Computed example of a mutant assay.
Amino acid sequence: MNDLALSPPRALRLAGAALLGSAILAASAQVSLPFWPVPATLQSLAVLLLGAIGGAPVGLAAVGLYLLEGALGLPVFAGGTGGPAVLAGPTAGYLLGFLPAAWIAGQAAGRGLAAQAALLLAAHLVLFIPGVAWLAGFTGLEKAWMAGFLLFVPGTLVKTGLALALLRALKR
Rank of each mutant, 00 (worst) to 15 (best):
N2A: 14
D3F: 05
L4W: 13
A5V: 14
L6R: 13
L6V: 02
P8N: 04
P8L: 13
R10S: 14
L12F: 03
L19F: 10
G21F: 07
A23G: 12
I24H: 07
L25E: 02
L25T: 00
A26I: 05
S28R: 06
Q30K: 06
L33M: 05
L33F: 14
P34D: 14
P37Q: 09
P39L: 08
P39E: 09
Q43F: 09
S44H: 13
S44K: 04
L45P: 00
A46N: 07
L49A: 06
A52V: 02
A52K: 02
G55L: 05
A56F: 02
G59W: 11
G59F: 12
A61R: 01
A61W: 08
L67Q: 14
E69F: 13
A71G: 15
L74C: 05
P75E: 00
T81W: 07
L87E: 03
A88Y: 11
A88Q: 06
Y94E: 00
Y94T: 04
L95H: 11
G97F: 03
G97R: 00
P100W: 07
A101S: 15
I104H: 03
I104D: 03
A105L: 06
G106R: 10
Q107W: 15
Q107A: 15
A108T: 11
A109M: 12
R111C: 10
A114K: 13
A114G: 13
A117L: 12
A117W: 03
L120K: 04
A122C: 07
H124R: 04
P130A: 07
A144S: 02
M146I: 15
A147W: 09
A147P: 10
G148W: 10
G148D: 10
F149W: 09
L150R: 12
G155Y: 06
T156D: 15
L157G: 03
K159T: 00
K159C: 00
T160A: 06
G161W: 00
G161C: 07
L164P: 05
L164H: 04
A165V: 11
L166P: 08
K171L: 11
